[in-house]
Nucleic acid binder design. Sequence first.
DNA 1: AGTCTAAGCCAAGCTTGTCG
DNA 2: CGACAAGCTTGGCTTAGACT
Length: 267
Amino acid sequence: MPADLMEKNSSSPVAATPASMSNTPDKPKTASEHRKSSKPIMEKRRRARINESLGQLKTLILDALKKDSSRHSKLEKADILEMTVKHLRNLQRVQMTAALSTDPSVLGKYRAGFSECMNEVTRFLSTCEGVNTDVRTRLLGHLANCMNQINAMNYPTQPQIPAAAAPHPAYGQPLVQLQGAAPQSSPAPIACKMGGPPVEAAKVYGGFQLVPAPDGQFAFLITNPAFPHNGSVIPVYTNSNVGTALPPSVSPSVMPSVTADSVWRPW
DNA sequence: AGTCTAAGCCAAGCTTGTCG
DNA sequence: CGACAAGCTTGGCTTAGACT
């Protein structure tokens, strides 16, 4: 039955606001009574808002994807949300790739941020008691290894922007933390293990893959040898909205100081 | 800090629509 | 007509803000 027909009374949801109902002169309601009577209306309004927005979203996404709406009349809510997520991720990919092609300093910012994070981890581990020595050694070794790879990275020359890049298969994977630190003897993850279509190669820089993060930032995906079966990656984010651009030639390890705004930090 | 209240969120159960 | 999926209602719980 349509929700409209299930209305128990004819009063408008808007009219039945708490303020108006609390002023009933002949039969004042208690707080609990008032809550009880207004609750279904509030929930109905909430559901109406959700459905209204979903309806608009459906129209927008079908239009954006150039889909015939008459052929998608049975689109479910979950389908609408899925299509929207995919579309937005696609848009972010294109925008981020374009941004990197015009602003290669992003890589320098990432280096600086990684270096600062690594220094902080080292500082913390040196003062933190109870950390297993082996774990500490492996973690620091892994970070040092990563740092070497980052410093060996080259800047892209002319990254190509795919006309219609497909959503990255690894995008949306759960974040892989550093608890599975790679053995120091593991090979450098130069080749990207994402298994994506050939067009992905345009966005692999020095063994790191650039993808847009959900919050609009860049995410460098570092292949993680600790997860060999599914090619898991360690996403490392770098802010694309920072103001100070680092010259590509400046290595973060020799930079005298890094401003708070110019590096990415996880905290 | 403690209390109250409105609003929001969520899960369970119910209703409705669709399909074989 | 029964099974199933989708949507709706509702009660309980949480949260945020106002007030003392």
